[in-house]
């Protein structure tokens, strides 16, 4: 019994150390880039928080995730978003009565984030919706609605502070 208790206590310490490190990194982010959105990928609580200036803007539930090697709190960097549909080169610059062709609202719908967009981070992490293939790359799966929202929020260079899950045998 004593052994179990002391073991849990040691695990708690690592969890708390990771949260403290995440807060240090978040505070640094808020001070150095106050105008940027950022993510907190909280694996122990299975949530991703979209934040800015310390304020929570959105909380997304993690539906599933593949094994991710990081064992300590770590900063990922958003690289780009790949959408399933991009503008056909042949349709560029077609206009009808001064407006983009074929429809007024298509430009946003075509170029904006989609439910099946993939969000790529460096090094080696993808956030995606269920059913979207990303090969062997470590990935986190969110709902399509959350993917579209995060795709709209993130710009290349934005950081994602990753808080890992602590295994019982660590």
């Amino acid at each position: 019994m004593l052994l179990v208790e002391t073991h849990v206590s040691g695990q708690d310490k690592i969890v708390l150390q990771n949260y403290r490190e995440a807060l240090v990194r978040e505070l640094d982010q808020v001070k150095t880039s106050p105008d940027d959105f950022y993510l907190i990928i909280d694996i122990p609580s299975k949530q991703i928080h979209l934040k800015a200036q310390g304020n929570v803007l959105r909380t997304c539930a993690i539906l599933s995730l593949s094994p991710i090697e990081e064992r300590h709190t770590y900063n990922y960097r958003f690289v780009n978003r790949i959408d399933p549909i991009s503008v056909e080169p042949g349709n560029a610059n077609l206009r009808l009565r001064g407006r983009l062709f074929p429809l007024d609202f298509s430009r946003r719908l075509i170029e904006g984030p989609r439910h099946r967009s993939r969000l790529y981070f460096a090094p080696n992490l993808v956030i995606r919706a269920d059913g979207v293939s990303t090969g062997a790359t470590p990935h986190i799966t969110l709902s399509p609605v959350d993917i579209k929202a995060l795709g709209s929020a993130l710009r290349p260079g934005n950081i994602a502070i990753f808080i890992p899950h602590v295994e019982a045998n660590h």
């Binding site: 206590s9 310490k13 708390l16 150390q17 403290r20 807060l23 978040e26 505070l27 808020v30 200036q53």
Partner: peptide
Amino acid sequence: PARETDIEQLKADIASLQEALKRHA
């Protein structure tokens, strides 16, 4: 294994950092 005091210190650090973050929010 971690001692009670270590855990308490970590909790105090976290509370202090959260407070610092609140000042920006």
